[in-house]
């Protein structure tokens, strides 16, 4: 059985793993000027949602409610990415295999589906193998420097995505195949 301290450390590692596709996708958006599609933005929202539950575990202690939050986000995110995978499951006439460039052989929406499914599986394993306390008190935990840093990174990345989404489409729905930013002079 895993102790609370061990689970806390696994939670922290999983947050860094979640940051990888989020920062990577935002990096591709900035460096390669690959503007995200509407479903790509929704997949990012799903990943942030998974992080919400895990961050709550760090701040308020390990609790099934927090895991539930992550699972709900992962399920909706998986539905979004499955929708996009199915949209591109048949090859196009022009020979392209999907939306955007593949990373390590898979498109970003396929990676997103992998992330969501692995998240659900990992949370299930943690809930099975964790040594649960009899009384689950929600007490504020003292965050160490690394945990504080993770919080700040998530706040900054979420804020950067807010600004990016506003520049891309303002408050209206984003175009299906975006080619330029609405509020940015290219």
């Amino acid at each position: 059985m895993l102790s609370i301290d061990t689970v806390r450390k696994i939670n922290l590692i999983s947050l860094f793993l979640l940051l990888t596709p989020l920062v990577g996708a935002f990096g591709i958006q900035i460096i390669d000027s690959e503007i995200p599609c509407p479903l790509c933005l929704l997949q990012r929202v799903g990943m942030f949602g998974v992080a919400v539950g895990i961050l709550m575990n760090l701040k308020f202690g390990i609790h099934p409610l927090h895991y539930g939050i992550s699972i709900v986000s992962a399920l909706i995110g998986a539905a979004v990415s499955t929708r996009q995978v199915l949209l591109h499951v048949a090859p196009k006439v022009d020979g392209s295999t999907g939306f955007g460039d593949p990373v390590l052989g898979l498109h970003l929406y396929t990676w997103a589906l992998v992330v969501f499914l692995v998240s659900i599986f990992a949370i299930a394993l943690l809930m099975i193998f964790m040594k649960w306390a009899k009384n689950l008190a929600e007490e504020k935990q003292v965050l160490n420097k690394i945990e504080k840093a993770v919080f700040f990174i998530f706040i900054i990345v979420a804020l950067a995505n807010t600004i990016g989404a506003f520049l891309e489409c303002g408050f209206s729905p984003c175009p299906d195949n975006p080619t330029h930013y609405k509020y940015l002079i290219n």
Binding site: V45, F48, V52, A158, F171
Partner: peptide, 8 residues
């Protein structure tokens, strides 16, 4: 989308 990221 902006609202979603802002709320997060």
């Amino acid at each position: 989308d902006v609202l979603l990221f802002l709320l997060l």
